[in-house]
Design a protein around this nucleic acid. Structure first.
Lengths: 329, 329
DNA sequence: AACAGTTGCGAAAACGTTTGCGGGGGAAAA
DNA sequence: TTTTCCCCCGCAAACGTTTTCGCAACTGTT
């Protein structure tokens, strides 16, 4: 299988390489007739430009890097799906890398991105990341950086986030409004800023209600959440509501409640922050505050294009988190 | 931010570009001292080779294409995760494309792959694909093609599959062994070879048992599966077992059974083919035959490397599908 | 002192594009 | 007829590598 290049086409047609190149790009210098001949031959020969050559010449690779802790999760797949959907029509490709939540691998992934001279980078930080130095190198090289979900501290980065504060607040208000007094609140990894934000906002609202108390727990896996839930519901005074910070938590909580045959919403109210897939699996469907990976992806892409168009100032953007009512409250 | 190239290093050190290149690659022609000097400067300058230039020169891009109908599913994310995990340590990158189950987009994705001169391609066909012509072009160009999950017919392609026949057979045997007599069997998209295979194998086993009957249905979404299940369980004579061909089906089935307050496994046995995530969400956990996207990914990668090493003969490989017992039978 | 063999390095071409510049040739203007 | 101008097109450099070939300067052998 001979591979078709501009040179090949130029030879067949008795033209120069430059003329063929310009003809294919509809350059005004080229006559209509020549353009026609070139296009036709290119079509029949199924010419495809060599992206590597173009990238080399233009010093720009139309590829975005995307680094996530793991692909197989509850959330990242829909984020990536959204980004990819935008990429193709805009002439970009996506190079995906997993950090496995390991700072070393993350750093290595950054190297790969650098070597590939990517045009931009989407990043969800690993929980182990302790230095932003490697990321700052990209900034210095004017390669747009868009963080999402797990984002760095400080105001010098582009961050696309769920409106965590608002979402947690909304959940808390809803619980109080339903008259919940003893709320079991389970959060994720304690070190993440996302956890801190959600925790603080949730706490603040609950504390406004004098006769309501919360039992706060941090669980970093659904197994842990399951165990914790079981403990609370084995006591004499059981919680009358459970707040889950994420899908991961929800899974554990539901497993416990179901095993203990605790009825939802009769015995206990349940509310969670979620992408929306899992809450609908259960019966009754769980009421949730939407934290859409899909929306997040769309917004992240928009911000990326913004950056490429010269809008370089760091910005923190939020997606709205509407309430989706199920039957769990 | 000046970008560092071999040329830049050679200028600083008063060497030629070729010498620098060779020094970095530990070429025997270069003296130990020169190598040391070059390596040190490259390190402090944080030189990163330009992959685009390398790809152009070598006519090989160390990138694999990966086309799936959609990223956000039950299955593909773990497949991709497995492939990505193998790629990095082997010096490859992954370019991911979604076909959105659309033949046109799929074709377009193939173009992108071609333009990028990828080294190999993983494909899960869209259900709309009606011609393999575009894929055959890759074969002709000696670009390895590895199909998975939804694979083409015929024996001229590399296919990595779940042992569908064996899995469906196993499920059927288990149901009969438990004494199920009236089995509701719900399958996915009727046109897929994967569906046909599972259907045939399942049917064959059931038909061996004279007093057992199956009600066969095809549903292409969980909503449809839910509706269908509801219909069957609203009749006087209800099924005593449900077989689900996939997670998608399982979701619908469980929703119906739960809403109808039908007890598992007392009133009905449930068994499914699944990646394993969803079955464990439910209480009791659903018994399933494992169809691991992760294992599939690992095997697909192995086959890809095989192809690149010259083993070009088309091959159909299977991953085993062990039974994972839950409490649903 | 002449020779062959080795060691260490550089020149240049090639991969496939894009693009600034320049030039031939024909038509219109003088 | 000469001049001017415009229309088409080709030359060549550049992007950053890798690699073939060759050459100079030693080293050691007769």
């Amino acid at each position: 299988m001979e591979v078709i290049t501009l040179k090949r086409i130029s030879e067949v047609l008795g033209l120069s390489i430059s003329t063929v190149s310009r003809a294919l790009k509809d350059h005004p210098d080229i006559s209509a007739n020549t353009k026609k001949r070139v296009h036709e031959l290119a079509d029949t020969l199924e010419y495809e430009p060599n992206i590597n050559a173009i990238s080399l010449r233009s010093k720009k690779n139309n590829v975005f890097g995307l680094i996530v802790p793991t692909l197989s999760g509850f959330f990242y797949d829909s984020f990536i799906s959204a980004v990819e959907q935008e990429c193709r029509p805009n002439g970009y490709s996506l190079m995906i890398l997993q950090s496995s939540d390991d700072a070393e691998i993350e750093k290595n992934s950054l190297r790969i991105c650098k070597q590939n001279r990517i045009s931009g980078l989407f990043v969800c930080l690993s929980t182990q990341t302790n230095s932003m130095e490697a990321f700052d190198k990209f900034k210095e090289a004017d390669i747009p950086l868009v963080f999402f979900d797990k984002v760095p501290e400080g105001n010098k980065y582009n961050k696309i986030c769920v409106a965590d504060e608002q979402a947690a607040k909304l959940a808390a208000e809803l619980l109080l409004q339903k008259g919940s007094k003893k709320i079991l609140s389970i959060f994720g990894n304690e070190n993440l800023s996302i956890t801190k934000t959600r925790f603080k906002a949730f706490q603040k609202i609950i504390s406004l209600q004098k006769d309501a108390v919360t039992f706060n727990e941090y669980c970093s896996s659904h197994e842990e959440a399951k165990k914790t839930t079981k403990q609370y519901f084995s006591k004499k005074i059981k919680p009358d509501a459970v707040f889950c910070m994420s899908d991961e938590i929800l899974i554990g909580v539901m497993k416990s409640l179901n095993e203990l045959k605790i009825s939802i919403p009769e015995d206990v109210s349940v509310i969670t922050l979620s992408d929306g897939f899992l809450p609908k699996i259960y019966t009754p469907e769980i009421t949730y505050i939407e934290t859409s990976g899909y929306k997040l992806g769309k917004l992240a892409f928009t911000k990326m294009m913004d950056c490429l168009n010269g809008n370089t100032e760091a910005e923190e953007l939020f997606i709205s988190s509407p309430l989706v009512k199920g039957g769990s409250m």
